[in-house]
């Protein structure tokens, strides 16, 4: 009985009505949290003694970089689930998630480059952290390209799932590149085991922005999955009813 909710989520129809209820509140909560975190970080957090005000880029850079990796982890897990159990919702999730992850990785790269200029004196270095995030961006683009280039839906689903699972190897490389290898990039801001090295008035707004961005992305991915569900299930009678009867 406890697993009923999980099996229900695997049904496109049930998922659609469930996400119809949750997408907007989750998205709005995300926007609110993100706005609070960013304003707090930009205007109220104290200046960094070493980096001055350029450190304020952290409040967007760290959340998007975390999301870029989390989105990929979710993508990889969904792909694995699809390859093993052929779950119908998995390719829908992959299709919805990949563009979001790509945008997150791109923002992480650009904001990181802009932060690098005043801090390291260079926009870009080919070190482990930066290069592995660039690879992450290309993985997302590869998944998007594969899914849209192949007309055969079955083949497209499978190809995208295989490349996402293989790409999972990149995640530990990103994570440990700043700990194990020689790099310009600073160490992780948040770890599960230790208190952050910054004072709370610096990391609290960051935490707020991170939670906000997770929620923002969750809302977006639900909406994108809805579009994909409607398109793939257009032969079902419930889709017809939904599209014809409800305005939005």
């Amino acid at each position: 009985m406890r697993w009923v909710w999980f099996h229900k989520l695997a049904s496109p129809k049930w998922f659609y009505s469930w996400s119809n209820f949750w997408a907007l509140p989750v998205f709005c909560f995300g926007c609110l949290c993100l706005a609070i975190g960013l304003v707090w970080g930009l205007a109220f957090a104290p200046e960094d003694y070493q980096q001055g005000n350029s450190f304020r880029i952290i409040y967007i850079h760290v959340p998007v970089a975390m999301l870029a990796q989390s989105c990929y982890l979710a993508l990889g897990v969904a792909s694995f689930v699809f390859l093993v159990w052929q779950m119908k919702m998995a390719p829908i999730f992959i299709k919805a998630m990949a563009p979001i992850g790509a945008v997150m990785a791109l923002i992480a790269l650009v904001s990181g480059a802009i932060w690098g200029k005043p801090t390291w004196g260079t926009w870009w270095v080919w070190d482990a952290r930066l290069t592995s995030v660039l690879v992450l961006f290309f993985l997302y683009m590869g998944i998007i390209a594969l899914q849209s280039a192949l007309d055969d839906l079955v083949l497209a689903n499978k190809a995208a799932a295989v490349i996402s699972v293989v790409g999972l190897i990149n995640l530990p490389i990103i994570k440990y590149s700043v700990v194990l290898l020689e790099t310009l990039h600073q160490g992780p801001t948040f770890t599960l085991t230790k208190k952050p090295e910054m004072p709370p008035e610096m990391w609290l707004p960051l935490l707020c922005a991170v939670i906000g961005l997770y929620s923002f992305v969750a809302g977006l991915v639900l909406w994108r999955m809805q579009s994909e569900i409607l398109m793939r299930e257009h032969r079902s009678s419930w889709v017809k009813q939904e599209v014809m009867e409800n305005g939005l």
Binding site: N53, I107, V110, W223
Partner: peptide, 28 residues
């Protein structure tokens, strides 16, 4: 002005805002 870092901070946030707004627009 953000000290001497205004250009960097605001261009980073400007780009991020544009990209996020595009993502929301594209989704809807």
């Amino acid at each position: 002005m953000m000290g001497k870092h205004g250009v960097y901070v605001w261009s980073a946030y400007g780009f991020s805002a544009l990209a996020l707004i595009w993502l929301v627009w594209n989704t809807l």
